[in-house]
Structure formats: structure tokens, C-alpha cells
Design a binder for these strands. Sequence first.
RNA 1: GCCGAGGUAGCUCAGUUGGCAGAGCACAGCCCUGAAAAGGCUGGUGUCGACAGUUCGAUUCUGUCCCUCGGCA
Length: 343
Amino acid sequence: MVVTTCPHLIMPLLSERQLRRKPLVVIVGPTAVGKSRIAVEVAKYLGSEILTADSRQVYRGMDVGTDKPTLLAREGIAHHLIDLVDPDEPFNAGLFRRHATAAIDGCYQRRKLPLLVGGTGLYVRTLLQGLCEAPPSDPLVRARLRQDAYEQGSEQLYARLVLVDPLTAVKLHPRDTSKILRALEVYDQSGLPLSSFHAEHGSERPFSALVIGLNRARDHLYRRIEERIDWQLTHGLVDETQTLLYRGYRRDSPAMKGLGYRHVASYLAGDCTWDEMVRAFKRDTRRFAKRQMTWFRREPALTWLMIEESEPAEQTVSRMMGVIHPFLAGLDGDVDTHSFLNS
RNA sequence: GCCGAGGUAGCUCAGUUGGCAGAGCACAGCCCUGAAAAGGCUGGUGUCGACAGUUCGAUUCUGUCCCUCGGCA
């Protein structure tokens, strides 16, 4: 094995000064852009541990369909926030934040720089900007509200929301049932409108974060998505879905409504042909990638890196280190990190 | 070469008795504070094959040409 000198090697352990700033390097981007692979390489240079911000990789037994990095692909780098719950257990942004905060504290105790990698924009935001103090989701309250929606129609739920929380109501479309449900759930539990919790929350910035967005040309990204889906379908996604169904996980549960699983399940149930299933799976994944881009475009102070089709991974990693290095150097000095980054 | 059918959005096609071109799918833009790979909103992206004629006005009618698909040679 040839050992090459690494041109980007930075202090393997964080200094006291850096630790006090609570540093966090974040890599986001649409699905199939190549985040996981790049992240492992970056983590090797930084002596980092990886935290996954992925709402699907938290489920045990959902591996092929969530593109979960295999043990081999992790190359000995510690990966956190994967396989946290079974597919029928509730999981949400609040739980993610709790797990992630604990994992980050662990990294700091080992004086390691945490590297947050993922495509779930809401989960990333719970760390960068915190979460308001509204009561968490309650399965019982939610079940009752969903029953109401089923019996009276979502228009009735919206009408209720207009009465108890007009500020949230104007922000939501009357058909946006899942968000209406959440707002009513908060009111039913606390007697206070969700909008009041939002107002109280304000702006919070718990970490000194460097956020890097990876992207590729649209047609190039779409081609990668299709190739990955073809690979998943011939490398165990069908068996994986069948096993999950056999174990009794319902098709309409949050975990099974993920991309791929819901498509394969509908094919297995005889609702569509194989070709129809593949087409819908690819189309829905393209649309998802597009929604992710809409979300990340809004993320403040995000540095975009466009990956060229022919660009070797080492070069992308090298360009990323060109951004990360000054960030870490800034943390070590007296410079205000934020103004440094924005200059 | 002859006969027939056709050429309109990225694709499949509808349509205009001559008056600003329209569906489905595909696609694009956007929203998001505990389901977020979820959920929701908005948008037609066009040299109507080309050229000429008739007409106030042609994607529509007429002529010529080009191309595609059948059939016969």
C-alpha cells in the first residue's frame, strides 16, 4: 500500500479555542449528488466523525433503499444517527435534534470535529437554528385529529385552525393537512397557538457552522438518480421491501412511505406493472431532488460547490478542503467567524 | 416511382365553420419550526414542417416542396 502525503492535513484534534466556538461542518445537497462518499474522504483528512442528517437512514432494516453507507464504505470512520429506531417507531425532527446534540457533544469530548452530512433540510435546520419550545408530536392527539379529518374533512380542521391560530392559518393552504394537523396538535396540548411558540423562539445559532452545498448539473444529477435506482432494484431493494412487509410494517406508515419502498410495495401488491413502478420511482425521486434544492437555496450563508461530471472525487475533496481550512483557521483566531465567512 | 395516412409543447395527441393555440404525462418555480424521501401551492415551456397564394387577418383554405409511416411496385 502506497502512503501518500496528504496536502490538506489539519490538526487531528480540535484546540481548546476551537472547541469553545462549537464548530460544525455541514455538507448538504440533493439525493444522489455523492455526499456520503465525499464526506468519508473529508472526514479522513479532518479526523472527523460523521453525523447523518437523513430521515430515512435512521430506520433499522432499511438499507438498500435508503442508500445507507455500508460498513466497508464507511472506511472505519464513525457514523452516527443511523439505525436509531425500528420502522414502526415514531421518529421526527425533535428526536433527531436530541440524538444529534448528544452525538455532537460526544465528538467534542473526543476533541473531534463533527461533520454533519445529509439531505433532510429540516433536520439540518434543527441544529443550525434550533427548534421552538412547542410540545412534541403526540401519537394519541394526532390519531384523534386524523380521525376528525377523516370524518369531517380537512376543511373543518382548517376552519378550526383559523379560530385558534389565525397567524399560522394564513401561512398554510387549506389542503395542507399534515401541517394543519401539527398546528392543531400543538394547540390541543398547550392551549397556545403554534405561531406564539415560533415568535418566542426567534433566532438561535448554537454552533459555528460552515455549510457547504454540493450540486451537479440537473441532467447529470437526474442520470445519477436513475442509475442508482436501477442498481437498487437489482441489488436487494425488492427483497428488502418484501421482508419489511412480511414483518408487518404497514404500507402507509411513515417509514414505508419513503421513496422506493412505497413504489416496490405497490408493485408487489399488483397495483402497477414493473415498468410503471420504475418510471414512478424515478420521477418521484427527481421531484424530491428538486424540492431539496429549493430548500437548500434558501439556507443562509451556504457555500455551493458544483461538481463537474468528469471531476474525480479527490479533486472535489480538495476544493472542499480549500473552504474548510480557512474556516478552521478562523475559529482558532480572534476573528469573528461569521463575518469572516461572509466576507 | 405510384397510392394512402400523417407532420401542432420534451413525449402522446386534441383543436380552431379563418380571429391572442390546449389536454394528459414529462418538466420548471416555490412554501415549510417534532410525519420532511412527508405534505402543500403556482406555471404552458410553441416558427402549429417550409415557401408562396387567397384574405383585413392563415396553424386552419389553395398550390408547390420537404420529411415520417403504411401499402403497391
